[in-house]
Amino acid sequence: MSTIRVRNLRKRYWSTEALRGISFDINQGEVVGFLGPNGAGKTTTMKILTCFMAATSGDAHVSSYDCSKESITVRQKIGYLPENNPLYADMTAFEYLRYVAELHDVSSSIILERIKDVAVDCGLSDKIHQPIGTLSKGYRQRVGLAAALVHDPEILILDEPTVGLDPNQIVEMRNLIKKLGKEKTVILCSHILAEVEATCNRIIIISEGKIVASGTPAELRGNVEGHANIRLIIRGDRQEVIKMLKKISGVRKVDSYTAKEKGAYGYDLITTKKRDLREAVTQAVFENEFKLLEIQKEVVTLEEIFNEVTKGMKTI
């Protein structure tokens, strides 16, 4: 039984269709990254899941409670860090956390303990009595995260949690998310690929209101590795080498260029999908008595996958 079940969710704003029927499941304990360009519908999906607004059609269930009908129960189970991390500037971090905890029915006997715990977890203890308006961006983000955690939710939804943080703070935030992912189901919205790759064990890529790809980072790579390259530098006659390389089954295209090394040329092999030709290539090179100087399999980065699927070039 999945913790979050979304079926054919659609959302229309006045004239634009933000979500065009998306469906996905998230299991307990998963850390799922929601990836997409700005305006793809990530935030809209999160707002529907947190019951902030209703979908136009389709349904969303959290722990088998319907988001539109049993919204209070759903909200109790979710800790939410909204986009841009809105906070009341005139309250101190402590006051704010207590306010949030009271609204989430944290019993008054453990409220102070909970606040202390999340403040320690989020590295907030030293600034807890400062007005939020005077805190730096990094600390504000921690306050937002602490507020999402204070009622110990089963599910954590973080919408762009690292926007505006400096590199050190980003690393800290990612480590914190990783730690939280061990106990909770986490949904992380982001348009930063490295972030999703570093923290999530599953990625859902969404573009123009539709899911265009989903899977583990490795699976996604496998899917796009059509143009997966092998880069070679081989010493020997250029035409002969090209002829030889083209004979190997699975090679779709060979590009060559002059290499730094004297008498050697560089070659880029474009292979057909999901073939690893490194062995076949080295074998052929040795058999034809050329000199292999370098061989390298290019790893597709998430950036390339992202570009590919969000440009609408290919729908997986």
Partner: peptide, 14 residues
């Protein structure tokens, strides 16, 4: 304006 309404109305309150 500040967006805090989102945090308020996603709390389990009516």
């Amino acid at each position: 304006k500040m967006g805090t309404i989102e945090a308020l109305l996603t709390s389990p309150i009516s």
